[in-house]
Nucleic acid binder design. Structure first.
Lengths: 195, 195
DNA sequence: GTGATTATTTGATGCAGATCAAAAATAATA
DNA sequence: TATTATTTTTGATCTGCATCAAATAATCAC
């Protein structure tokens, strides 16, 4: 019951338990393979020029995943507390991809190396299940994102964004939000200025 | 080596083997739980008003997943040979969702019931792995889709579409493509008409 | 095959939002 | 707290695409 794990691990264990039961053995393995890592505001987490071999579970703070288009930074995701962050295609397929990741504010994470994750997949089938189910959740988010990106006006896009990111939107710079939505800063500023 | 399974099952077995090894036992279970089903052109495959309890692996033909927005059909996906099709959130979370699915042309599929799939997940950990890995592939496609939907002009969107659907684009009606891209039929027609 | 539906093309017009430019506000740094 | 750098706001103009309308072409049903 009372655990001798790093007290910070409670959040991430709770996260896993949304999808699977954590055996004592798996808890131990996780605890041994997760490393507490913090990032300062503005610090780079992942560089697009290298293969992503780490995945970060955010304890608190915000990460931004972005890529460069025509010399400008384009936000692909914002990620906050309780989410795993990595460069998905790079991490999963061990190849270079377009995404950079940095910390929008001071952020503390648990980090796992891809080879450690593979070890867990190989020895704990429930980890495979966890991955399948949690990907299902994210999958749903991506679908909704795709739907919301078509047809809607800039204002509708922004309103949808406010719903999805209701708890962190006020911590995100306008310019990053605009590129996330695929509209210009000026347009977003005007939308906000209405009334 | 030589199998006594339905000869049509070769494609789907090959599909699984892109991700996992298929034991004889799992082959048998799959064979017992997959049902060959065909759909006529225009036939409805899934109705948004019910929970989606089946997933279809396309042998040949094309399905369209769409939803209704302001009284009009909006294409969310086209799916062709070698792909699983269902109403994702409905199928995974057993709830009603917005998607209808129909056959754009005569289509033959292998169909699995969700409860049969669950049985397989519970008895064959490699099926969990298969699901995780194959979802990773789809995940990558969704990411690319999201990226391509922002910033690009209607023409760029269409050109990207031609690449992604290079083998089936000519079998898809213009109007369905336009709604998939989030542009009007008229605009797509004009893009095609250039030169 | 022939009329009826449905899909695609073509034309004219209007507007949301991009682009360019520059001021104002906010934040970072010494 | 002054100085610089960055972010956000405001203004003026331009344009790609939506919208509305109607003709043409393709497909379907009998």
């Amino acid at each position: 019951m009372a655990s001798d794990y790093h007290p910070e691990m409670r959040k991430i264990f709770t996260h896993f338990e949304q999808y699977i039961k954590l055996s004592e053995e798996l808890r131990n393995e996780l605890s041994a393979r997760l490393e507490l890592l913090t990032f300062k505001k503005g610090q780079m987490v992942h560089d697009a020029n290298v293969v992503c071999t780490k995945s970060y579970f955010i304890q608190n703070g915000i990460f931004r995943t972005y890529f460069i288009k025509d010399g400008k930074e384009v936000t692909e995701f914002f990620s906050a507390e309780g989410e795993w962050v990595n460069s998905p295609r790079s991490f999963m397929q061990r190849k270079i991809d377009i995404y950079y990741i940095d910390a929008i504010e001071h952020t503390s994470t648990f980090c796992i190396q891809v080879n450690n994750l593979m070890y867990l997949f190989n020895h704990f089938p429930e980890m495979e299940r966890y991955a399948r189910l949690s990907m299902g959740t994210i999958f749903g988010h991506l679908l909704e994102r795709i739907t919301s990106m078509r047809f809607t006006t800039a204002k509708e896009k922004y309103e949808h964004f406010l719903q999805v990111y209701s708890d962190i939107h006020f911590r995100l710079p306008l310019g990053m939000i605009a590129s996330y939505l695929g509209i210009t800063q000026e347009t977003l500023s005007r939308i906000r200025g209405e009334r």
